[in-house]
């Protein structure tokens, strides 16, 4: 087992039994590795709706059990709880911003994160006493993100949390994730149906097919190319977009990947 891998999945399968007794295969032979690195990375799992992305994230997070296969976290098969930000970022409405962020910390024995710095970093400084109900989706995502970052785990999972945000909020959150990844050396796995989002954010894109979800292709993105990929008219961007589209078309003619910005 490679000790230098942050996360390694080996032949993960997930099967559910329906009420009628039928076996439903949700994930099929999922294997990939995220190497441990000195800086933070963002890995996107780009897949159509109903491909089992959320199930895969729940398995990685330790909330759900795989039917077969192995997961290694920091080289060890020992179960770890990895923070997961679900599709609708959920900050608890009965807790204020500060209490929401401390919620996970109060459950763990890990050392206290420097919270004032974190508030400022995620743009929540001055809002510590505010309650999240009636706040925007972007605001609630920042709370969920800060709550996960405060736990000081080397990996955070995000399950397609941006799709209901408006363009401006999304752009701000992309910038924030890139900053946290670069400066705090935080690793993320992001499940998404949005191709542009995957290109704009990722250091690595894992393409997954429709149900039963299986890996079609892994694309590594050179850090040097990231600035060019933010320009949607650049040659690099078009090449990568075409490569992803071709990969999906070879396995299924119709996907629900969102190709628009």
């Amino acid at each position: 087992m490679n000790q230098n891998s942050l996360l390694k999945l080996e032949s993960i399968n997930k099967t559910y039994s329906s009420e009628a007794g039928l076996k439903i295969n949700v994930l099929k032979d999922i294997s990939f590795e995220i190497p441990a690195s000195d800086g933070g990375t963002i890995t996107s799992i780009l897949a159509p709706f109903g491909s089992g992305k959320s199930t895969l994230l729940k398995i990685i997070s330790g909330i759900s059990e795989q039917s077969s296969g192995k997961i290694y976290y920091n080289g060890s098969e020992k179960k770890e709880r990895i923070p997961l930000i679900p599709e609708n970022p959920s900050s608890f409405p009965w807790l204020n911003v500060k209490q929401n962020i401390e919620f996970g910390l109060n459950l763990s024995e890990k050392k206290k994160y420097n919270l004032p710095n974190l508030f400022s970093f995620v743009g929540l400084s001055g809002y510590e006493d505010h309650y999240p109900n009636n706040k925007s989706l972007g605001f609630r995502f920042r709370i969920s993100l800060a709550r996960a970052v405060a736990l000081n785990t080397s990996l955070i999972l995000i399950d397609d949390s941006f799709k209901q945000m408006n363009k401006e909020s999304r752009e701000e959150i992309y910038k924030l994730l890139n900053e946290i990844s670069s400066y705090q050396k935080q690793n993320f796995i992001l499940a998404t149906t949005n191709l542009i989002e995957a290109i704009q954010l990722s250091d690595k894109i894992i393409l997954m097919s429709k149900k039963p979800g299986r890996i079609i292709k892994e694309i590594e993105i050179d850090k040097k190319d990231k600035s060019q990929l933010n320009d949607h008219k650049s040659e690099k961007f078009t090449m990568l977009k075409n490569e992803i589209e071709d990969a999906f078309e070879t396995v299924e003619s119709l996907t629900t990947i969102n190709y628009s910005l």
Binding site: R81, P83, P89, F92, F103
Partner: peptide, 11 residues
């Protein structure tokens, strides 16, 4: 279920 997922993933 989002509340439950978040809380479970926090341990």
């Amino acid at each position: 279920k989002e509340y439950i997922l978040s809380a479970q993933s926090l341990g």
